[in-house]
């Protein structure tokens, strides 16, 4: 592999650009393929698109020999709205699991570098912060403030975006009231149905740290499986 290929890969990841590195195992040729340009290896275009969508690398057999397609999707990203106690547990856990984490909370007393030493912090309202971040299919949003003034703004932006997961903290009753409020703002039911609430897998979580485990587990389940079985959701609180 040429050094410039490795440097280009690092730069693409930093810019959140999806790329596939095709390695011809017989000839030794290496090629970077970008889905948006569609250039190169035209006969493998469908396989390359599949590999990107499923986030799976693997060998494809061609008449000329084996080609290894290594998928480099943009890094996973978690936006946590609410610089609350559970966020202090969730943020480092998500980072270990491979997510970059951004904390959004307009309450400056919460959104401090002391409470979140290793995370990017945006101490502004979600409707201002989120458009700046920009959502893509490798981004998820977790709303944890309990405060409709803050969470609702974030959820309204997220449901209209291609982000892969949206979750909101609160009991079934709180969640029902939330959905009613958002519907009152003219948000369509199919968009509201994207919000996971009550948030997290039902693991009997107690306290902020275990709640963080259940949230991260649900995020991974949706990322890898696409859906979460309803019987594994937390019951009415």
């Amino acid at each position: 592999m040429k050094a410039e290929v490795l440097r280009q890969l690092a730069s693409d990841l930093a810019q959140r650009r999806a790329v596939v590195l095709a390695s011809d195992l017989k000839s030794g040729a290496r090629q970077l393929i970008y889905p948006e340009t569609g250039k190169g290896l035209a006969h493998l275009q469908n396989l390359i698109a599949d590999a990107l969508r499923s986030d799976r690398s693997g060998i494809v057999d061609t008449p000329e020999g084996e080609i290894f397609l290594n998928v480099f999707n943009p890094p996973l990203r978690m936006i946590i709205v609410g610089a609350v106690h559970a966020a202090q547990s969730l943020a480092p856990m998500a980072q270990i699991a491979g997510f970059s984490v951004i904390i959004v909370d307009p309450r400056e007393a919460f959104a401090t570098a002391e409470r979140f030493p290793d995370q990017e912090i945006m101490a502004t309202w979600p409707d201002e912060a989120l458009p700046k971040i920009g959502f893509d299919a490798r981004t998820c949003l977790v709303a944890l403030t309990h405060d409709p003034k803050i969470d609702d703004l974030a959820l309204a932006v997220a449901v209209a975006s291609p982000c892969f997961y949206i979750g909101a903290l609160g009991s079934s009753r709180t969640h029902a009231a939330r959905l009613e409020r958002l519907a009152g703002h003219g948000i369509a039911p199919d968009r509201l149905a994207r919000i996971h609430g009550p948030i997290g897998l039902d693991i009997g979580a107690r306290g902020p740290t275990e709640i963080a485990v259940s949230i991260l587990a649900e995020v991974v389940a949706v990322l890898r499986r696409g859906v979460v079985r309803t019987e594994s959701k937390i019951g009415a609180a």
């Binding site: 050094a3 890969l9 690092a10 990841l13 693997g58 060998i59």
Partner: peptide, 28 residues
Amino acid sequence: SGRDRTLLPAAAAWLDEGRKIAVATVIG
């Protein structure tokens, strides 16, 4: 993890330092 997001930037930094490197990729 094998695909930690810090991995490629770290490899590029090794090149910057003039270190000679090899890349091993799981292909199957």
